[in-house]
Design a protein around this nucleic acid. Structure first.
Lengths: 225, 225
DNA sequence: TATGGCTATATTGTCGACAATCTAATGTAA
DNA sequence: TTACATTAGATTGTCGACAATATAGCCATA
């Protein structure tokens, strides 16, 4: 289910989305230099289009641009990931609080339905839940906050970076059933319109996820040795 | 004292900063249409430069752009201001938490010095504190978080919008001495490395400020009647 | 009179060429 | 050999012109 079917209308839109995908999926590796002329031949558009796409990527913090020098894909690091999750904790915590306040009852009903379908999947051992299901759940709450800034920052900014880390550092994480329980409690708090608790639980949920990732990274570093 | 002396190097940089200032200060009124050709003559640069500037303003949420239609300056509203302060509360709360963790002792000493100089000003009845002083204080804590994303979102994004509201809705607010005490307690928590308390106090500080503004707006609406 | 389609005009989107700037290679002097 | 200056090459920044799209006004028709 797609919420933000960000309709690309101009060529710059399409190139931006394509380029972002290629970076997030690692086809263009992190740390790589982005040559405008090279990309313009690669994507068969003019340099102006590429420049606009790169500018947009820069405002999502997916690339870093220096004047008269050029743009590079951000390089991933443990520190960077932690910083990202600190922002997520802060913003999504507030999103959960606002969702408890602002979501309509029918939206909350839908959320419960989603949760039930996830329960069936988890019980059935499907791995679908890990990726799309989790994102789906978080998106609903973010949109439920009804706060334009919050939504834009998370959906257009943070989440693509999170996905980039997830894909490129290969963070799958078992945590499926655990996370499901956490989701359940968050929805419960939202159903009860308990803003305080919704925020606290969401923040914990993201903190746990962060710890899990840090642990995994530490382990994979061990394995390399 | 300037922290982020964002050095404009290209013509697009300069035009972006100029245009942003003209919008924030209300010279270009909120809600106005931004004609590319008109602006290009006004600022004596090519349309490409203007386009880049507008794109950057769009990613700060200062203008809204629609494909094949154009860009408009955002229109200010009470709801918009409240949404903005919700994000501020969330992000600056986290900034204070991280500042308590990550600021160096010498940075904390500087912050105490700043507070003392503010105390003298408040005692002397200077109104300086309200504007620049307050911003200065908040900036130090934001930068003290050492979190790139947090810093960029607040300094490049939120704060210009906040200033736009402040200037155009003429929000001065008395709150000087009260706010000073709040600042003092926040610094105290940071000095004690009490992350939890630093976050709570900062969030309260911003909430109070929000309530104060809402009250002022309600009053000025009464006066109009 | 109201509505629906068409055209004219203005505005935005895209392009290729030129100018300004950085970077790396070469050469020179201490 | 090292350090610095110079220069050639490549890359980014800027521009004006053209193409594609939307808006407003006009005319025809019910």
């Amino acid at each position: 289910m797609k919420f933000f079917s960000e309709q690309p209308v101009t060529a710059a839109d399409k190139t931006f989305i394509q380029l972002r995908q290629d970076i997030v999926e690692g086809e263009i590796p992190s740390g790589a230099k982005l040559s405008e002329t090279e990309l313009s031949t690669r994507y068969a558009v003019s340099r102006a289009i590429i420049r606009e796409a790169i500018n947009r990527l820069a405002s999502c913090h997916i690339v870093e641009r220096k004047a008269n020098v050029g743009a590079r894909v951000v390089s991933l690091s443990t520190d960077g990931l932690i910083e990202l999750y600190q922002v997520r904790e802060s913003l999504e915590g507030m999103a959960a609080r606002l969702a408890a306040k602002n979501m309509t009852t029918s939206e909350i009903d839908d959320l419960n339905l989603l949760l039930n379908s996830h329960f069936d999947e988890v019980k059935g051992g499907e791995s679908y839940y890990q990726e799309a299901g989790d994102v789906d759940f978080h998106y609903r709450i973010i949109l439920g906050s009804k706060n334009k800034h919050l939504i834009s920052m998370l959906v257009n900014g943070i989440y693509h970076l999170v996905r980039m880390y997830r894909v490129q550092l290969g963070m799958a994480g078992p945590r499926v059933t655990t996370a499901f329980d956490e989701h359940k409690h968050i929805v419960q708090a939202i159903s009860n319109r308990d803003e305080e608790l919704a925020e606290i639980l969401m923040r914990r949920h993201i903190m746990y996820s962060k710890h899990n990732i840090e642990q995994n990274l530490a382990q994979s570093r061990e394995r390399v040795k």
